[in-house]
Write a protein that binds this DNA or RNA. Structure first.
Lengths: 346, 346
DNA sequence: GTTACTTACGAAATCGTTTTCGGAGATTTC
DNA sequence: GAAATCTCCGAAAACGATTTCGTAAGTAAC
């Protein structure tokens, strides 16, 4: 049914040697423009394109890069990963590389997914997200010497390429805004502590506090799952404090969603009685009640860029020059509330 | 760096012929249990696993199935596709097959993504979702004779395998519930008309109307994009009618989200003044205001099942016996409102 | 003890490319 | 006009597996 043509048959049709045809198609080596054109035309006519299997065997390359989807509990509700995937694919589709994905069932078996990728499928490169401060995936990949690029930096191992959407600026600018509005006790609902973004968010939070000479109170920061439910429970805990926060900064929009729910439960109005800010610009943010103020997260572009970095790395560039930190921008809607005391901007 | 072992080196280590080793590893043909065990142990010890490139070249199979992500405007906000992907991968990871995905930029270039998959990457099978009544992708695949399974049925071409989460029951049961509550003018905010689910939803809607001997009014159904914005605009249009609907059935939760927004704009309360029901059980549904009543969509399971069907198809089973229609279930929260006139259940 | 049959293994062909290297002809150089 | 230099093109050797088919040894049958 397939009726696919061979490179040797194509060569015979043209009265050329297969080596010549190959060189013409790959635009490599000695072959005159005239015959190159002739070959390309014939290839087009017969619908010939080199069989990846043969080429891969010969070139000892899989022309494949793998992406591993983090365990479900951390991302089920995230358009995030799809954006990333689309960015990656859009860039990759311009190259001979193909994108293969595997999903990790749980945190415990996540490394198996990586092993499957590099040991069984023999990918040429790997991508993943949600880096951790101490990240065994990074250790594994560096040990096996397989090229990779991550979404997010880490404190693990030798330098590696990454694109990082800087959570410290979200933490710092978000709480600074609250402080500017007169708040002195600000809650922080963070993503799980092992994630790098959580650490960075808290760093930003502390920095803002320090800049305003406000004390740090450990009671006010709780780490929770990246989900509405996490936000719900975390905010309940915060609001039950004897001296509860008057504003809440959240490590993710889903967490903020749950937090607003918890605030409503206590009879207060989120955004007016207790302002809330999230992270990552979830598409549903504008439709929440009140619309959620948040920080941008250009994941599609990050995906595109990660491909550039990976290709550059495989091309021999050094990891250190392939690290990018992007600053997210505040997206003002209305959940951040307004001045506590009196007037001023916004 | 890779330091990977060959099948011939493995054979030499064992003092066996490569053919014997190959047969032992693939559990095929004539080889005694004793040597089979010996080979397997050695393979384990040396960390040998057959190079996919060699095997694929020889067996003339890519051991790859492709999934194409529908154009972004239709799914950016959908955890949906991720669930599906995870279901697919979980099942596929038990087989030698790998999952490669490509994304379609726009509806116009979508077919190119399919061509890339089958003509350049030579996948053994294809999967995709969001079937259309008249679906060029199906025509293309059937013409090229490549095995595929879709999420959703279609009216196109010869029979093909699919898993379909039946939108007619959502349409029928949703509007029937409204009718039971005393509503007589029910709006339908449907997904884009070319989609199969839209057609089926409307069929269900009409069926419920007919069963209650209520007239069909074309003014009351508007087709819109699968997004909050689509729901917002669609509902505005509905509410601006001279004789507007008193309840709204939506083809998707995101549409319902926008619709509730539009209702709020007019000073009415969604769920109490105008009840709303959605489809597909978006994870944010419980956190909307009011929590959204909707229909279930077991996409993870659907993904798993699609793999079964594809494998069965490639195994020679006929398409007609590989078609499954699943009934979604109503998930009661509170946006569906309650009895208009008086009392009764819920 | 010869024949027939079964079992377990091996030699070699094959899948479709790419790449190296050699060499024929054309072109330039002195 | 011979020598040196370019330009193109082709023959053949990999790459790493699977599969066909042949054959030696072992077993059973008579």
């Amino acid at each position: 049914m397939k009726q696919r043509i061979n490179i040797v048959e194509l060569a015979r049709h043209l009265g050329l040697a297969v080596s010549t045809v190959s060189k013409a198609i790959n635009d490599r080596g000695d072959v005159s423009d005239a015959t190159k054109r002739r070959v390309l035309e014939a290839a087009e006519k017969f619908g010939f394109s080199p069989d990846p299997a043969g080429r891969r065997l010969r070139t000892q390359t899989s022309e494949t890069i793998g992406f591993v989807l983090s365990p479900p509990q951390t991302h089920f509700a995230h358009p995030f990963f799809l954006d990333l995937l689309m960015g990656i694919d859009q860039n990759l589709s311009q190259t001979p590389f193909q994108l293969i994905i595997v999903s990790a069932r749980t945190l415990e078996t996540e490394l198996d997914s990586f092993r499957r990728l590099v040991e069984r499928q023999r990918v040429d490169g790997v991508m993943f997200g949600r880096t951790r401060r101490d990240d065994p995936r990074i250790r594994y990949l560096q040990e096996r010497n397989v090229p990779f690029v991550a979404l997010g930096r880490s404190e693990t191992g030798k330098p590696f390429p990454f694109v990082d959407i800087d959570r410290t600026v979200a933490g710092r600018n978000g709480t600074a805004r609250f402080i500017g509005f007169g708040h002195r006790r600000i809650g922080l609902l963070s993503t799980p502590g092992y994630l790098m973004i959580s650490h960075l968010l808290q760093e930003g939070y502390r920095a803002a506090l320090k800049a305003a000479k406000l004390p740090f109170d450990a009671e006010l920061v709780v780490e929770t799952g990246t989900s509405e439910e996490g936000g719900l429970n975390g905010a309940r805990q915060l609001l039950a404090l004897s001296d509860p926060p008057t504003a809440i900064m959240c490590g993710h929009d889903l967490i903020a969603t749950g937090a607003m729910q918890a605030i409503t439960e206590t009879g207060r109005r989120p955004g007016v009685d207790i302002p809330v800010i999230g992270c990552d610009n979830h598409p549903l943010g504008p439709y929440l009640n009140p619309p959620l103020t948040t920080f941008s997260a250009p994941t599609f572009e990050a995906g595109r860029r990660m491909v550039d970095l990976l290709l550059a790395l495989m091309d021999g560039r050094s990891a250190k020059e392939l690290q990018e930190i992007w600053s997210p921008e505040l997206i003002l809607r209305s959940s951040h509330g307004s001045q506590m005391v009196a007037a001023g901007e916004i």
